[in-house]
Amino acid sequence: MPTDKSLELAISDLKFAIGGLENAIDARIERQRMGAEVEGEVRRVHADRARLAQELDQSEFRANRLEEVNREVSRRLVTAMETIRAVLDR
């Protein structure tokens, strides 16, 4: 019966098409999931960058402050040495 064969062929083609559609949907869902993971990772990287930039700013501030204190200590030591020399030279 040719009608039965064409019906079986049509059903087979339909099953094949549905399988392809299911595979395409699964692939799309997986790409979306991976995209969401990438977006989350990008957000984490930006947050880390902001935190590191803030820490760098704080470190630079501390380094500048230490440099200022170092210069002041050095100036005071020079003044003290000059005073001691002046006393010893008398």
Score class of each variant (00 low, 15 high):
residue 2 P to M: 12
residue 2 P to D: 15
residue 3 T to V: 09
residue 4 D to W: 03
residue 7 L to V: 11
residue 8 E to W: 08
residue 9 L to G: 03
residue 9 L to V: 07
residue 9 L to P: 00
residue 10 A to C: 09
residue 10 A to D: 01
residue 11 I to E: 03
residue 12 S to V: 03
residue 13 D to I: 09
residue 15 K to G: 02
residue 16 F to M: 11
residue 16 F to E: 15
residue 18 I to G: 03
residue 20 G to F: 01
residue 20 G to N: 13
residue 21 L to F: 05
residue 21 L to M: 07
residue 23 N to M: 10
residue 24 A to H: 01
residue 28 R to Y: 04
residue 29 I to H: 03
residue 33 R to S: 02
residue 33 R to P: 00
residue 33 R to H: 02
residue 33 R to Y: 04
residue 34 M to G: 00
residue 34 M to F: 01
residue 34 M to N: 09
residue 35 G to M: 04
residue 35 G to E: 01
residue 37 E to W: 00
residue 37 E to L: 01
residue 38 V to D: 01
residue 38 V to A: 06
residue 39 E to D: 08
residue 40 G to T: 04
residue 41 E to K: 13
residue 43 R to Q: 10
residue 43 R to A: 05
residue 44 R to F: 06
residue 44 R to N: 08
residue 45 V to I: 15
residue 46 H to Q: 15
residue 46 H to V: 14
residue 48 D to P: 00
residue 49 R to I: 12
residue 52 L to K: 05
residue 54 Q to H: 07
residue 56 L to A: 04
residue 58 Q to L: 05
residue 60 E to P: 00
residue 61 F to Q: 14
residue 61 F to H: 11
residue 61 F to I: 07
residue 62 R to Q: 11
residue 64 N to L: 09
residue 64 N to M: 14
residue 66 L to M: 11
residue 67 E to Q: 10
residue 67 E to N: 09
residue 68 E to R: 10
residue 69 V to Q: 12
residue 70 N to P: 00
residue 70 N to K: 12
residue 71 R to C: 04
residue 71 R to W: 03
residue 73 V to D: 02
residue 74 S to R: 02
residue 81 M to A: 13
residue 82 E to L: 09
residue 83 T to H: 13
residue 85 R to G: 09
residue 85 R to L: 14
residue 87 V to T: 15
residue 87 V to G: 08
residue 89 D to M: 14
residue 90 R to H: 14
